[in-house]
Amino acid sequence: MGHGGNVIDELMTDHREVEELFGRIEALPPGHKDRKVYADQATIELVRHSVAEEEYLYPAVREHLADGDAIADRELEDHSKAEQIMKDLESCEAGDAEFDRLMGQLMAEIRSHLADEEGNLFPKLRAACTPDALDRLGDKIRQAKKLAPTRPHPSAPDKPPANKLLAPGAGMVDRMRDALSGRGKHD
């Protein structure tokens, strides 16, 4: 799928890509090895997406929305739950019973989070920000995703400035580990 446009378009594209990966996982029988490949791909996309939101979207939400602090705090709590599930999922193989349980939990958590963002947060942000501000935010999100980690780091900071300082280094290490291990690649 093509990326670009304002922050809402960019993040909605990410949402559709993750949902497509979830659909691929659900279409395969339990224990199929490709379920782990797709789970790893979904984790990579979700972590990059979450880090970019934490670096740029949620600070903008705090700045531009009257109830921005409460919304951003709720979104960060959702991210924290999902990140811990993804961390637990890392050590599971597709044939493990725990894999199916965690994958189901992750899909439910993410689907609820995406529905909330799309139904509540994005319309409020679109109403509160100029089109130019949304475009600039989209550019920042795209840039952040390029440098973001690809693996869950539940204990990493999720608010600026610490997250902006540490994420690129963790991202570089994660991408090196992924390249060496072949993680997230389909045979």
Rank of each mutant, 00 (worst) to 15 (best):
M1K: 07
G2F: 08
G4A: 06
N6S: 06
V7W: 01
V7Y: 00
I8W: 09
D9K: 12
D9F: 03
D9Q: 15
M12A: 12
T13W: 01
R16S: 00
E17D: 12
V18N: 00
E19C: 07
F22R: 01
R24A: 00
E26N: 08
L28G: 12
P30N: 03
G31M: 03
H32T: 06
K33S: 12
K33V: 14
K36T: 02
A42N: 03
T43A: 12
I44V: 13
R48A: 15
H49I: 05
S50T: 15
V51H: 02
V51C: 07
A52W: 00
E53R: 04
E54P: 02
Y56T: 05
Y56P: 00
L57C: 08
L57N: 08
P59H: 04
R62I: 08
L65D: 08
G68R: 06
D69T: 12
A72H: 08
A72T: 08
D73P: 10
E77L: 12
E77R: 14
D78Q: 12
D78R: 03
H79I: 00
H79G: 05
S80E: 15
I85F: 12
K87A: 15
K87Q: 10
E90I: 08
S91I: 01
C92A: 11
C92S: 12
E93D: 14
A94I: 06
G95D: 11
A97H: 06
A97S: 15
D100S: 14
R101I: 11
L102V: 02
G104T: 01
M107F: 03
A108W: 00
A108C: 01
I110Q: 04
R111N: 13
S112L: 04
H113E: 01
D116A: 12
E117V: 03
E117I: 06
E118H: 01
E118M: 03
G119F: 09
G119T: 02
N120G: 11
L121R: 08
L121E: 12
F122R: 06
F122M: 04
R126L: 06
R126E: 15
R126I: 01
C129S: 13
C129K: 12
T130Y: 01
P131C: 05
P131F: 07
P131W: 10
A133H: 06
L134I: 07
L134A: 09
L134T: 04
R136Y: 10
L137Y: 06
G138A: 09
G138Q: 07
D139M: 10
K140Y: 09
K140P: 00
I141F: 11
K145F: 05
K145V: 09
L147C: 06
T150D: 04
R151G: 13
R151Y: 15
P152V: 10
H153V: 07
P154G: 05
P154N: 07
P154Q: 08
K159T: 14
P160F: 00
P160V: 13
P160Q: 10
N163Y: 02
L165D: 05
A167W: 04
A170I: 11
A170Y: 13
G171V: 10
M172V: 14
M172G: 08
M172H: 11
M172S: 13
V173K: 15
M176I: 15
R177Y: 07
R177K: 14
D178C: 07
L180Q: 09
R183T: 14
D187K: 10
